[in-house]
């Protein structure tokens, strides 16, 4: 059911890649300040769900709305302009641009030039400003992508597999960052690292083969073993 207060409401969403159907009747909602985790094995449809919300894939049926705004049919850059930012999982930054130029791209699009908020979360980026982004490590690239996305104070961050392939120390740092960010914006995090998402999420959707198999909504039940039951 659509709630005007919801940042995102997805109902009855079906998405196909050509003949191959990937999402089956998926419904979910995200309220302000919530950290929502989508967990599931590879191929469960988690990334497809995020890309559909971000306007990158056109659903075959179903509805996606933000408050009273219908997002179906909107192109990705317009949805980003509404404050719904997608951080893809491949950690590919604009490699030929410097860190500063990458941040400038984020700033110019949102008219938010306050980089202190970025360097407060990721102090290391300060020293890397004039480095080409292509030379950054995986963790530094993830910091840059998150930093660039939070410029303009979006209302929702869609984060796809943020910890994949990163060192444990960076994963811990990102966990703290997500906790802090959740005080200012809602987050939807797609992740296979169950202990991490269970530590920060208010709500968990478990996906399997394109369907939502379970929804955990109270802190007591959000535990890795409970999530695994559905996967």
């Amino acid at each position: 059911m659509t709630n005007n207060d919801d940042i995102i409401t997805v109902s009855g969403l079906n998405v196909s890649y050509g003949e191959s159907k990937v999402l089956f009747d998926v419904s979910m909602n995200v309220r302000p300040g919530q950290v929502v985790a989508c967990v599931g094995r590879n191929g469960a449809g988690k990334t497809t769900l995020l890309k559909s919300i971000a306007g990158f894939l056109k659903p075959t049926s179903g509805a996606i709305s933000s408050g009273t705004t219908n997002l179906i049919g909107m192109v990705a850059y317009v949805i980003a302009g509404l404050g719904i930012k997608y951080i893809p999982q491949d950690k590919k930054v604009f490699s030929d641009l410097t860190v500063r130029e990458n941040l400038e791209l984020g700033s110019y699009a949102t008219k938010d030039y306050n980089w202190d908020q970025v360097t407060d979360y990721f102090p290391k980026l300060k020293q890397l400003m004039d480095h080409k982004a292509g030379y950054l490590s995986g963790g530094e690239r993830q910091m840059l992508m998150i930093g660039r996305a939070i410029l303009g104070s979006p209302k929702l961050l869609l984060v796809d597999e943020p910890t994949e392939g990163l060192a444990p120390s960076i994963v811990m740092h990102l966990k703290d960052v997500f906790r802090e960010l959740s005080k200012k914006m809602a987050l939807v995090i797609v992740e296979q690292n169950l202990p991490l998402v269970c530590a920060i999420a208010n709500k968990v959707y478990a996906l399997k083969e394109g369907r939502i198999m379970g929804e955990l909504t109270d802190r007591e039940s959000i535990r890795p073993e409970m999530c695994e039951k559905y996967l």
């Binding site: 990158f56 850059y77 980003a80």
Partner: peptide, 10 residues
């Protein structure tokens, strides 16, 4: 370099 990511930035 990556047209899609530019769209994600708005």
């Amino acid at each position: 370099i990556n047209e899609d990511k530019l769209r994600f930035l708005g």
